[in-house]
Structure formats: structure tokens, C-alpha cells
């Protein structure tokens, strides 16, 4: 089981959390083209490398937070920053 370091609850089974997805900055909806908006909503980088992700602690503190995970080793790094929602910059 993947152990996710929640900034509020501490290490938790990943089944206690929801994987929200890669953290991308949200384009300005007033100026974004349909292509940019589609990329923001649906396209993922999916690197075999360090990846900034958003998680939701659904069975614990019910907070969104961002952290970095190495998609090859599943190692986490950087203290997660509480309160970040999908698409906001860390």
C-alpha cells in the first residue's frame, strides 16, 4: 500500500485519500483558448520522474494538498502545502 504523508494526519494509507491528479496551473478562463482549456482539464504529463500532485484526504482531515512523488519509486518529497486545490500553483 502506498503511504501518503498528509500534512495534517501524518502517514496514511492511500486508500484513505483520493488521488486528484497532476497539479497544473489553471489558465485564465477569459482568455484561454478551447485547446488550452482542454489541455488543462484532460491532458497529463505523466513523467517517469518527480511529479507535483494534488491529493484529497477524504477519510481524514478532508483537505486538499499538493506534494511531489517520484512516479518510479513512489517516494514522496517536500513538505506538502495545505489548502492547495487542483490547478493552483504550489
Amino acid at each position: 500500500m502506498l503511504i501518503v504523508p498528509c500534512p495534517h494526519c501524518g502517514p496514511r494509507n492511500s486508500s484513505d485519500l483520493r488521488y486528484v491528479g497532476e497539479s497544473h496551473s489553471r489558465p485564465d478562463p477569459n482568455t484561454a483558448t478551447p485547446e488550452q482549456w482542454r489541455d488543462y482539464l484532460y491532458m497529463e504529463d505523466n513523467p517517469a520522474d518527480w511529479l507535483k500532485e494534488t491529493w484529497y484526504c477524504r477519510s481524514g482531515c478532508r483537505r486538499y494538498f499538493t506534494l511531489e512523488r517520484h512516479t518510479g519509486s513512489n517516494e514522496f518529497r517536500n513538505p506538502p502545502i495545505p489548502g492547495n486545490k487542483k490547478g493552483t500553483k504550489a
Binding site: 494526519c9 496514511r12 494509507n13 484513505d16 477524504r58 477519510s59 481524514g60 482531515c61 478532508r62
Partner: peptide, 11 residues
């Protein structure tokens, strides 16, 4: 006091 999955239910 904490919250976690108990028997697969968020408790």
C-alpha cells in the same frame, strides 16, 4: 481524535 477508514467507511 482522528478520522480514518473503518471497515472501508470514513469514520
Amino acid at each position: 481524535a482522528t478520522s480514518a477508514s473503518v471497515a472501508k467507511v470514513s469514520c
